[in-house]
Amino acid sequence: MESQAGGASPAPANTGTGHAPGSSGIGSLLKLSGASKQRLAGWLFLTPAIAYLLFAFALPIVYNVLLSFERDSLSTIGSINAPWAGFFNYTAMFNDQIAQSAIVHTLVFTVGSLAGQFIIGLSLALLFSNRFPGRTVARSLVIVPWLVPLIVTGVIFRFMFQQEGGAINQILVGTGLIHNPVDWLGTTSYALLTVTIANIWLGVPFFTLLLYSALQEVPAEVKEAAMIDGANPWQRLRLVTIPIILPVIEITFLLGFVFTVKVFDLVIGMTGGGPANATQLISTWSYTLGFQEFNFGEAAALNNVLLVAALVCAPLYLLLSRDQLRRSSGAGR
């Protein structure tokens, strides 16, 4: 993940101590005099990224807050002098039944997706930890769904879950699991479940890959010791393996959460939010409000709810990424 071949190498600014082999006194003198030149170069290397982050992230987020307090239409969205709306957009949003249900759907969709992705991903990761013929091929094929453009995944699942002529119904009826074809995407009670299933399929490769690489780090002696102590496979998993890979499980859930709350393409491709808004998520309803009803104010208010939901995990995310932050103090360590 992070290579650190040069972990112990001295930093440019303090090579004058004489411990670093190969750095002569003259070299360090030259560098010290060039220290401010170097700092300037560092800033110049960083400038495009700063400009980009300001333009493509900071500005839109600030602008979104501004939009949420304005009465915007397509004719005023580009201008600053749109009429001020106070909290109108927020009260409108919280009284909007579709927005309310979109928030609930997003929650159900996210929890269901993560649970399914974790259970299937961990099972596959455990499976791939065994040695068996075809293991390498199977492991690399499992990541293929990850590479499919999301809108394509959406249309494939829409096709497979059709009531008439859909592969899923045909398999289920053929094997006798159900008697009559189910209208998976056309009935309000099944549609959210169906898009959740599609999203589980989408996220399994990610969970499998991350959990698999974590399992490789579990020392064999620990597992053997547990086996000698008479622990059965379930106990070994629950009491030995999972506690050891817990940090990776945490970060995987966190990233999975971040992916899932922003799912958009998949649902647009499968249902467009229907039937009767049964699969309307925060993201899809925000799009509909903004780009189809040109109610940019309420869309922005809803976006802010989504942003807050996504950022709820930010402190935990930064905590788990503290290695990357800690290494910020400069070159080498």
Partner: peptide, 23 residues
């Protein structure tokens, strides 16, 4: 800056899309 990058990865695209359209 690294903290900002980590947070930037969290921001949902649809949140950016509405404002980026206006910008």
């Amino acid at each position: 800056f690294v903290g900002a990058l980590l947070l930037a990865q969290i921001v949902p695209s649809i949140v950016l899309a509405t404002s980026l359209f206006a910008i």
